[in-house]
Amino acid sequence: MLTLTDIRKSYDTSEGSVTVLDGVSLSLAGKETMALTGESGSGKSTLLHLAAGLDAPDAGQVTVAGQPMGRTDAERARMRRETVGLVFQQFNLIPSLDVGANLAFQARLAGRFDAAWQTELAEALGLSDLLHRYPEQLSGGQQQRVAIGRALAARPALILADEPTGNLDEATGDQVMALMLRLVAETGAALLMVTHSPRLAGMLDRHAHLRAGRLA
């Protein structure tokens, strides 16, 4: 479902060019879940962003659901809305839209909105009574549940999650994590999740560790 081949990425800083990823390759099959761990600055988030098409690698190839990631902004945006669901640590909901519109946003944008599936998702995530609330009126756990619902609403082939429970307390984090894993399994999507927690990493099928831009 996701194939990364010899990915290289560096950034220009005031102190010169810094290599963040140095020839990383990995692949993830459908329905497979993988935890990506590593020190701060090891390149975890960058790898996730490249997999999502939020940024382009300097070299290497990203393939999602059998399609190579496009070169242009427009091509990558299309791939993103059609094949990828994103869950961030900071939830990053759209503040001007209520819960219902946030849930449906990406699915509608991709032309894949399914009202029955949206209702099912909202019920499963415990959001049915909150559909007309705005993000600022929700708790952190509720916001992250909306973010998970939004990521799954278009039934994407790949879910990419960046520290999805990093901003939540342990109990809420565990609930959110369990929900996400259940729903990902139900949709048949693959999951690549960045985490610092060995405990959470242990919940997933596979585990990869990044060190100084390379897979250890």
């Binding site: 999502a52 939020l54 902004d73 427009a74 945006a77 299309r78 993103r80 809305r81 059609e82 994103l86 961030f88 990053n92 909901l93 759209i94 503040p95 001007s96 946003f105 990406q106 944008l109 991709a110 939004r150």
Partner: peptide, 13 residues
């Protein structure tokens, strides 16, 4: 406010 919309698949342009 715009970054989540961009992440959901809308181009910067």
């Amino acid at each position: 406010q715009l970054a989540p919309v961009w992440a959901a698949g809308m181009t910067r342009g």
